[in-house]
């Protein structure tokens, strides 16, 4: 219990929140890294995953990249990038590592989401004369949306976690509070920093769960469908029109 009250005292001390090593500054760095890297990795991985899923090609790549991403230690990649010639360019090694580890969940979920769209629905949309682009935008994308968002959420949590580790080789972010605590044998600061990181990760997870529910283009239909599933599981729009 001593550790918890110590961490609480640490967090309640105003001086720990201000300045270059303060919580606000580190939180700002952490959020900045998270937003920038998530945006870059979405811009790279989502179009690729959607296209591969739409074409039904490159499945082995899209799925195995997640397994590969799990086997490679994030800490090792961070240190390798910092020691490489890239290490001279400030935050770039951190940004590259964060993007690399955010891509696998995005790519795999986008691909699987697109492939799991009911083939009958795709066939009937083609039969209605939809072009490839229309099919992708109006049929596949709305139906694949929940899985795509699961990928974005997983990637966001992954980026928050990896950004924490970036503090070990000297990057910015909330992880610096933890490493500084370790260097000073200050358990209160270590626990306080860890609490902040854990809360941030949980908030990001919760925010993305809420976001995917609110922005789901089929949110009303999915709810209705759960109550009355028609025989082929087709959304009502295509059955009645």
């Amino acid at each position: 219990m001593g550790a918890v009250s110590g961490a609480w005292t640490w967090l309640a001390t105003g001086a720990h929140w201000a300045g270059g090593d303060g919580v606000w500054h580190r939180l700002g760095e952490h959020l900045y890294l998270t937003v920038v890297c998530l945006a870059i990795s979405c811009a790279i991985a989502l179009p690729l995953g959607l296209l591969l899923g739409h074409l039904g090609r490159g499945g082995a790549l899209a799925i195995n990249i997640s397994n590969a991403g799990r086997a490679v230690p994030t800490f090792a990649v961070l240190v390798l990038l910092v020691l490489s010639p890239l290490g001279r360019y400030g935050q770039w090694p951190t940004i590259i590592a964060l993007v690399l580890f955010a891509i696998p969940p995005l790519l795999t979920n986008a691909y699987v989401g697109m492939r799991e769209v009911d083939r009958d629905v795709v066939e009937s949309a083609r039969g209605m004369g939809m072009t490839g682009g229309q099919l992708l935008a109006r049929v596949e994308l709305p139906l694949a949306f929940p899985l795509i968002m699961t990928g974005v959420r997983t990637a966001a949590v992954q980026v928050v976690a990896t950004a924490t580790l970036a503090a070990l080789p000297g990057g910015g972010g909330l992880g610096r509070l933890i490493t500084a605590g370790f260097n000073r044998y200050d358990t209160a600061q270590v626990v306080a920093g860890a609490l902040l990181v854990a809360v941030l990760a949980l908030l990001v997870e919760g925010a993305f769960v809420a976001l995917s529910r609110l922005t789901d283009p089929l949110r009303h239909r999915r709810r209705a469908r759960r109550q009355s599933v028609n025989s082929r599981g087709l959304p009502k729009r295509w059955v009645t029109e």
């Binding site: 550790a3 976690a161 605590g181 626990v191 854990a198």
Partner: peptide, 18 residues
């Protein structure tokens, strides 16, 4: 699931006082 969301560095740090 909540446990899984906690980043590894934070997890080890939280277990340190225990």
């Amino acid at each position: 699931t909540v446990l899984y969301t906690v980043p590894s560095l934070a997890m080890y740090s939280l277990l340190l006082p225990v």
